[in-house]
């Protein structure tokens, strides 16, 4: 399946693009992350540490075990700093 993957804040800067389309058969967020790390050094560095990484699936917060088989849009970002 084809999903739109978005990156924000320093993840966007480290990876170098704000979003991209990815062809994946990953079932869970973790599996997609493993595939992304294979894409190159920038991805490996950006996703080296995932303990504080946030993910949104179709614009709803999820976690690394969330199912993504119904997802059109998956976003990765560091903890939010609004307000």
């Amino acid at each position: 399946m084809m999903v739109r993957v978005l990156y924000f804040s320093w993840l966007r800067e480290r990876i170098g693009v704000p979003s991209e389309s990815i062809e994946t058969d990953a079932v869970r967020v973790n599996e997609l992350l493993d595939e992304l790390r294979e894409k190159g050094e920038r991805y490996k560095l950006a996703f080296r540490q995932t303990s504080s990484l946030c993910v949104a699936i179709n614009q709803e917060l999820g976690d690394m075990d969330s199912d993504i088989t119904e997802a059109d849009e998956i976003a990765f970002f560091p903890p939010m700093t609004g307000g």
Binding site: F8, S9, A56, L61, A75, F77, P78, P79, M80, T81, G82, G83
Partner: peptide, 14 residues
């Protein structure tokens, strides 16, 4: 609302 805007609304400050 302010507590949730701080850490559950997708904003990032530089």
């Amino acid at each position: 609302l302010m507590d949730f805007l701080k850490s559950r609304a997708p904003f990032w400050k530089k």
